[in-house]
Every structure is written in C-alpha cells, then in structure tokens.
Amino acid sequence: MTIFYFTLKRSFANLANLIFLTAAPIACIFLPAGEGWPPLAYGYAYFGIVILFVAIRLAQIMMEDRVKGILKRLSVAPVRYFSYLGQHLLAYAVILILQSAVVVLGGWIAGQELHRPWALFALYVSFSFAALAMALAWISVFRSKDAAFLFYMSLIVLAALLGGIILPLEIFPDLLRRIAVILPTFWFAEGLKSIASAQPFADNVRINATLCLYALVFLVLGSTRRMQ
C-alpha cells in the first residue's frame, strides 16, 4: 500500500490543491437554495461540477508520473501496472468519498433540506467514480498537463450546462434534451431531481447503476498502459 499512502500524501501536498480539496466542498454546503430550481440548494448541484474538477486535478498526478518518467521507474520496479493504477484510483476515490461525506453531513448539520441524505451520498459517490474514470481516460490522451486541464475545464462547463446542472432541462429544446442523456452530468442532475421529488428507491438504484456503468466504460478505456 505504499503507493496508496503516498498518493494521498501527494494529493494534499500542494497548497492550492489543499484549499481546493477542502474549501470547495465546505463552500458548497452554505450556498443558498433557489426558488423551484435547482431541486436541492445550489451548492448541492454545483458540487457535481466540483467533483469533476477535483477528479481531473487528482488524475493529473498520474499524468505527471507518466510525463516525468516516474512511471518508467516503476515499470522497472517489481510492481504491476494494475496495482499502481488501482492504488491511485483507490486513494482518489477515498478523497472524493470523504468530500461527499463532508458535504452531506455538513448540510445535514447546517439544516439544509436534503430529503434523503443517504441516497444523496450514494449519488455523489457513484458520480465521483464516473468522474474519476472520465478524468483517467482524458489524461491518457494528453502529454501536457496544462492543455489537458484547460481543455477538460471547457468541456466540464459545457457538459454541466448541457447535462442540466446549471439550467433546468425542462426549458431545453427537444433535441438538446435527448442529446443530454448521453452525458453523465445528465444522470447526476436526474439523480438530484429524483431525490428531491421522492421517487421510489428503485429509481435511485437505476441512476446510480448507470453512473457506475459510465465509470466502468471509462475505466476500461483509460487504463491502457502508456509510457510516453
């Protein structure tokens, strides 16, 4: 578990990362609620975007390993690439799960209307997995850290908009609403809606399962071993 331990350590080593990883979720707790939209308070919708950003920032650590040649060094050491990948992802998942817990727990203590905190927590966790897997697949294509991050940032904004996190899907034209379903962000927004409108439990399961499916797909695509 050396890699796991040090990944955690590195994630928090950078001051900017530290602020980003702790302050952003806490800020999300205290954002106000809107009128009719979004289904939960603003912060709970925007936390989805935060998760996407955190995921790419964390995944960049792996990208750095590849670009700087640490991966070469590891491939000469008696460590399987699979174990390297697994321990990294585990560490990131732990960070994201903790963040989700902080947001849900904090909201519950601060008296936000969360409807079903457990379902919300589960939604955040499965969305975190999907976000991590997407970030992993994304960085496997790039060589430059900045380019990867800025590109992804633009895509996040677009996906959040098209997926219905920033604006309600109901006002979208028909075609856009259909296309939105392709995006994982849609399923996240859908999950929030389902929690707020007290849909049956099975509905939540369906949405979480879809998000996990996304995670699997991108994990398979992103786990290719690259050296350069």
């Binding site: 399962a209 499916l213 996304y214 699997l216 797909v217 398979v220 695509l221 786990s223 290719t224």
Partner: peptide, 15 residues
Amino acid sequence: ILLLLLFLLTSLRWR
C-alpha cells in the same frame, strides 16, 4: 443503458 452496456462490452474487447 443498452447502448452503455454494449459500449462497455466493446471497449473490453478493444482492451
């Protein structure tokens, strides 16, 4: 979800 499932299987086949 059908498309997602099939895509997952295909990407497995790719890897």
